[in-house]
C-alpha cells in the first residue's frame, strides 16, 4: 500500500462498488414501491349486472313501450345499456347495446339495429351484417313481469 497509485486505484474501485450497491438498493426500493402502487391502482372487477337473482330489472323501458311489433327503445340494466324491441314477428328481443366495434350504444331502427358512430349494422337477430362490427351483439333473455321488464343471460 506504499505505492500511491495503487491506493488511488483501490479507492476508485471501492467507490464504484459503493455506487453499484447503492444503485441496486435504489432499484430494489423502487420495485418494492411499484408493486403496492400497481395493486392499489388495479380496478375491482365490476359487479355482476344480474346480481344474485340471475336477472336484472330493465330501467327506462316498460312492457307498454314495446307492446306492438316495430316498437323499440334503449334502456339500461345493472348499470349497462340495452336495446329492447318487438320484431315484425311479434317476438320481444333484447341485446346489450354496446356495439362490438367501438363501444357506442346501438339503436333499434325497425328493420335493423344501427350504430350511429361508424355505421355498424346488425340484423334483428343481432348478427353483424354491414359496417365495421367484428362480432354479433350480446343477446339477452327478456321477460315481462307485471309493469316491468327483466333480462337475464342467454346461457341460463
Amino acid at each position: 500500500m506504499s505505492d500511491r497509485g495503487e491506493v488511488v486505484e483501490e479507492g476508485a474501485t471501492g467507490r464504484r462498488g459503493f455506487l453499484a450497491v447503492l444503485g441496486g438498493l435504489t432499484v430494489a426500493w423502487l420495485a418494492a414501491v411499484a408493486w403496492p402502487v400497481f395493486r392499489y391502482l388495479s380496478p375491482r372487477p365490476p359487479p355482476d349486472p344480474f346480481g344474485g337473482e340471475g336477472k336484472a330489472l330493465v330501467k327506462g323501458v316498460a312492457p307498454g313501450d314495446v307492446a306492438r311489433p316495430g316498437q323499440g327503445s334503449n334502456g339500461s340494466y345493472g348499470g349497462r345499456g340495452l336495446v329492447v324491441f318487438r320484431g315484425p314477428d311479434g317476438q320481444l328481443r333484447a341485446f346489450d347495446s354496446k356495439c362490438t366495434h367501438a363501444g357506442c350504444n346501438v339503436q333499434f331502427q325497425g328493420d335493423r339495429i344501427y350504430c350511429n358512430c361508424h355505421g355498424g349494422t346488425y340484423d334483428l337477430e343481432g348478427r353483424n351484417i354491414a359496417g365495421p362490427p367484428p362480432r354479433p351483439l350480446t343477446p339477452l333473455r327478456v321477460t315481462a313481469e307485471g309493469d316491468s321488464l327483466f333480462v337475464s343471460p342467454m346461457s341460463s
Partner: peptide
C-alpha cells in the same frame, strides 16, 4: 377498508 394497500398509502 377495501382498496389494496389503501390504508398503507
Amino acid at each position: 377498508m377495501e382498496v389494496p394497500y389503501g390504508a398503507l398509502i
